[in-house]
Design a protein around this nucleic acid. Structure first.
Lengths: 250, 250
DNA sequence: CGATACGTTGACGGAAATCAACCCCGGTGG
DNA sequence: CCACCGGGGTTGATTTCCGTCAACGTATCG
């Protein structure tokens, strides 16, 4: 039986992502191709799962931007991570019954839902895949730590610059970015919720980056004009993303 | 062959910790008891592993406080997590070759080093243990996210209060705390590096908490005088720690 | 006993929050 | 067709939390 990639866009996104993180054997790739999944499209700003839910599926992002977030009293929102094509942001629900944060779409999205049972069977049958997924959750944890460093100790412009660097490298790793440009369909309010900054200050910060000739950001498209300058400002070192292909980090 | 717990303090700390997170069968416990490990004592403020290292062992904390940290330019330090008896703070090195942060002792410590090979063999032979360890790494990630919320959006006193709540629950889960008191042998500088605050402000913040009748903190011993008040201030909800024994979270 | 590390306190400054307009643009409907 | 609306972006004035700096207190230890 054949599973040509062009007929299996969901599964091939997942494989492309896993390949950026670990080395999959042909056998393992085939196993991923036979994972059952239900594809669903969602509008922007819709919750996928909420705090307290006990999901029985995992959600694979096929197209669009998704984020984890947590709400606090007084309506403040902290965005905990951004997720792109190939990510499974709630993989943790395989092992932690109840969600300790929510998941929502930031743009219109194509999502694919995989039953926990099928995933568990896959991991049991293919230890190499289990290792790859585990590795991926560890990388996500590393990204969280890097964000902590930013929130704790970096100034606003460094923090923003670091996020822009990170997204470029991650998007390139799954082939969703050009050399020094990519689609970043986020509002300044969303950036602020991720960076721990007010809307007003995000605005001023982005203008500083523009004024410094580092970036251009209009209508959801980011162009990095001075990659070295941006990296230097952010003190960006992609090691923490633990990507397999070192070329990507150039 | 018998392995009485009192003769195997290192392994029993590990088991106690894993039991707080997952349910181990007698067989799995026995397997953990036969893990080879080399015990080592270290003074306070010593690096265990550094950024860039490629360790071939994992480090189990038997006694003492350990932290992960990352340094920035201008000597700023962000503490990324605290680790206590039973934790394996560098378990990730099983899957991520190169360290993206450092690990150091905060107090004199007893540490036990387990070769990667032995751990890998253990996980291969006991899928239930693999699940328990995976679950534990996911919980650590959840703790990081909770810290992100604090660093991004909580005021200094809430942030400090939240940390104190978290440490109580974690220490109680492994039997290292009394009802509302525990040893917290951290300097204000270390608290500041974790909370993203300057030394001066940590001092003021702790005095606010004292003045509010919430805590008493002297010579490394913390007494929580008003647990409900502290939880309320911190908006502390222990769900994110995903502990098995709900009683602990009271 | 002085050395050193940790804790405490105050004065001052700055980065970012808050509050409040205002602009621009695409969509919608009368 | 234009008026209106709402979401997103921009800007300025003011405030506040927290950092920085500097001094001083206090305890532990060789």
């Amino acid at each position: 039986m054949h599973h040509p990639a062009e007929l299996q866009p969901e599964r091939s996104r997942l494989i492309r992502k896993l390949q950026s993180v670990a080395d999959l054997s042909p056998d393992e790739q085939r196993a991923v191709f036979s994972l059952p999944m239900v594809v669903k499209t969602m509008a922007a700003d819709q919750d996928i799962i909420r705090v307290g839910d006990r999901p029985s599926d995992c959600c694979l992002v096929v197209e669009g931007f998704v984020c984890r977030y947590d709400l606090m009293s007084e309506g403040k929102r902290q965005i905990l991570s951004f997720h792109i094509s190939g990510d499974i942001p709630d993989l943790q629900s395989l092992f932690l019954e109840v969600m300790d944060h929510s998941l929502c779409t930031l743009t219109p999205c194509k999502l694919a839902f995989v039953p926990h049972d099928s995933l568990r069977a896959l991991l049991r049958a293919h230890p190499g895949l289990a290792a790859a997924f585990w590795r991926d959750t560890l990388i996500e944890a590393a990204v969280s730590r890097e964000w902590m460093v930013g929130l704790g100790h970096r100034a606003a412009d460094q923090r923003a610059a670091h996020l822009l660097c990170e997204m470029l490298v991650r998007l390139k790793a799954v082939g969703e970015a050009r050399e020094h440009a990519y689609e970043l369909p986020l509002t300044q309010a969303e950036l602020g919720d991720a960076l721990g900054l007010s809307i007003a200050h995000v605005n001023r910060t982005l203008q500083d980056l523009r004024a410094g000739g580092l970036i251009e950001l209009r209508r959801g498209t980011l162009a990095i004009l001075d990659w070295d300058g941006l990296k230097r400002l952010a003190e960006f070192d992609p090691t923490y993303l633990h990507l397999r292909d070192k070329a990507v980090a150039a």
